[in-house]
Design a binder for these strands. Sequence first.
DNA 1: TTAGGGTTAG
Length: 317
Amino acid sequence: MFSPSSRNHSQSSPYEVSRIKHGTSSHEIENPEEEALALFRRVLRMRPLPSVVRFNHLLGQISKTKHKSVVISLFNQMGLLGIMPDFFTLNILINCFCHLNHMGFSLCVLGKFVKSGYAPDTVTLNTLMNGFLLEGKVDEARECFCKMTKGGCKPDIVTYNSLLNGFCKVGDTTAAVQLFRNMEKDRFCKPNIVSYNTVINDLWRTQAAMELLCKMQDCGPLPNIRSYGILLDGLCKNGQLQETIELFRNTEEKKLPLNIVIYNILIGGMCKAGNLVAARDLFSQLSSKGLQPDARVYNTMISGLLDGGLIDEAINL
DNA sequence: TTAGGGTTAG
């Protein structure tokens, strides 16, 4: 039986936790979470007991409401009634432990998986890796990836992208690029737009980022507005004004849906370069493009004007 | 199939 201490819940019964949280009486069912819990309690009293599939349905529903420790408590109640967990139950349980930062318990369940004769699948792999990455444990995520794929688990695009993002977050660009190359070689799982944007976001200071964009334009997947946003931001940060303007024109030509973030990047870039005329021009274009300036754009424009000594204009903006 | 999950630009 699994019984980790919960960080977020008291020792009340699952149903009580739910009632307290939502302030309802025991007779009022107000949301799907309460409905699932009430149903679970009814199902526990049924004789003969329903199949494990029915229980999995309910556990899955409750798990989606983010009450992971409640799921674990219900799983234990199932055990007391002699309901054997199946492949799906165990994956749900692993997911709950991962979200509660109880990776030790997640690995215990994995052991139970193997002992019961189940082979962990892509869902198990992604869930475990996500658990490690949530804790910032990239090395453990990598080890998990290596061990499980060697053991026959097939990685999918999410497996790769999760690890890619993990490497980028800790600044391990070499590992990220290596993994990206492995994906390019993988016949079954080529990099997609998420993979490209993740790597471009990591390489924005380098020429390699622009080369990746060209590659996308030539061979696909086609870059989206976020790909351009990442690069425009990089060019602005590098002070490459001419390249910024060219790339922006390229974005316009491709008729990609320009948004307020793109304009804020450009306005900030122009202000930084001291080109307040261009910054003001971009700002004044917003309404004609159907875009509503938000607080951040105002902030960028006002800061630019103040830095340029145009105090009255900043006040009257 | 009942389970899981990825970029996140200002």
